[in-house]
Design a protein around this nucleic acid. Structure first.
Lengths: 248, 248
DNA sequence: CGAGAAATTGAATCAATTCAATTTCGGTGG
DNA sequence: CCACCGAAATTGAATTGATTCAATTTCTCG
């Protein structure tokens, strides 16, 4: 089955500005389009890929959302990313030629499969595509650094506020409402990602609601005071005290 | 000045098996050698690169060690990596074309500078070199995931034991003694990296010494029971109790 | 509708931090 | 070579943010 029949085209994709196509011209886009493989939709809890299986393809999220996690030595899971449309998945596999994390759909979702060998051949002809791939990997490394900072230097409430505002920003980039959105992950998964327990997440959401920062209705979150949330996620303006945290 | 005069050659470098040269043939190595630029030695506390300065080059550590850190919103530092000979530095800059972290020498050190534009041109001709670069970036992402796991799921003592055994492994790969080595970073920097305080690091080192896992003599660490350390860094065999941590 | 999963809330606990006081180390200048 | 000074490290005591344990309540969806 040809891609054209499925209308999978980078040109018409509303997330192309976040994905590999950035900065590619028409010819380059066509070549990229040609290698994208069709995948049937995934449903909630379906695995897109599993750790320790051979690396074949990168994936771009088209619709829906995913979580990626690595297994700990004692079999627990550590979520390392939540993926939204336009995100690329699989960069952790290039070194060992095996995926090192597991990726699961958090809701019904579609992806574009990019067979890596073919992608590499196309990239041979288009330096810009190559740069695009490297740029995405670099951004992922940058992101991870910010995450280490968040986990090491921030309190529970700063972490959760950062998580919520960051999510809001990502929704904005994708043309969704940044004021009101549904969480596709559970409180448990948020806690796992942020190094906190479910109970802490729950208590904080209740607290933020009382403080008029957000409105919580189950999975539906409404952002009431984005700026205050960003401020407080950086440890500023705590308890109406406008002095910055002391730095040693 | 030509590189030959300075005897900087990948072929003769004892860390080439960890660095970009992996899997390159003689021709490819020569091309790589040609683009490596000489840098005068850096001394303790010298900056190799600074965040928010334009990205020009990647760097490979030849001798000595470095720390890389990102600045927090309130001006503190969060160390994101310690670099040993053979390590590549600068992958966080490809996306924004600016370095996003600061890299400082922890002792007298030498690096090979790899001007990125030239490297890219050479990589155009040698797919293996390209793959090598991507492979290193992928490995860095993988590493970061393990770090998130460590920070979110492990206790203070597990983190420090992991840090010490991981360092020992890296020394082994580089042909150094893995049983006895000097820490080039301070207790403070170890704590910063692991999300712990200096006091905690100090107390734990004392404890590990009492438990005959290591011998501590200032910066000199002797590994006495590597296997036990690895076990305990994964939460196993605590307090002579050979049952594994319960997993929910 | 009903059962299991997810979320909430309170109380008790604890691992690591903070605060505080020395001690030791490492480098510099006389 | 030693004395000195600031930085780094150690150790103890008190404190605390987040967890753990426990008990419901509220969703979700087959």
């Amino acid at each position: 089955m040809k891609n054209s029949e499925l209308s999978i085209h980078c040109q018409s994709c509303s997330f192309s500005h976040l994905c590999l196509p950035v900065s590619l011209n028409s010819d380059e886009l066509d070549s990229l389009d040609d290698i994208i493989e069709r995948k049937r939709p995934l449903h909630k809890h379906d695995y897109l890929l599993r750790a320790n299986t051979p690396f074949r393809s990168l994936y771009a999220v088209r619709t829906g959302s995913f979580k990626s996690y690595v297994a700990t030595a004692d079999g627990q899971e550590q979520i390392v990313a939540f993926h939204l449309p336009g995100d690329l998945i699989g960069f952790d596999a290039l070194s060992s030629n095996c995926y090192t994390s597991n990726t699961v759909a958090l809701e019904t979702a579609m992806v574009c499969e990019l067979p890596y060998q073919t992608l590499n051949e196309v990239a041979e002809r288009f330096p810009k595509l190559r740069n695009q791939i490297m740029s995405h990997m670099s951004a992922e490394i940058e992101q991870n650094h910010q995450m280490m900072m968040l986990l090491n230097k921030r309190t529970a409430q700063e972490r959760l506020l950062h998580f919520l505002t960051h999510l809001a920003k990502r929704f904005t980039e994708r043309g969704y409402s940044s004021k009101e959105f549904n969480l596709t992950m559970t409180r448990n998964e948020i806690g796992n990602y942020l190094g906190l327990t479910v109970e802490t997440i729950s208590r904080l959401l209740t607290r933020f609601q009382k403080e008029q920062l957000i409105k919580v209705d189950g999975k539906l979150i409404s952002i009431l005071d984005f700026d205050a949330m960003v401020m407080r996620s950086q440890g500023k303006f705590e308890h109406d005290n406008p002095t910055q945290r002391m730095v040693v």
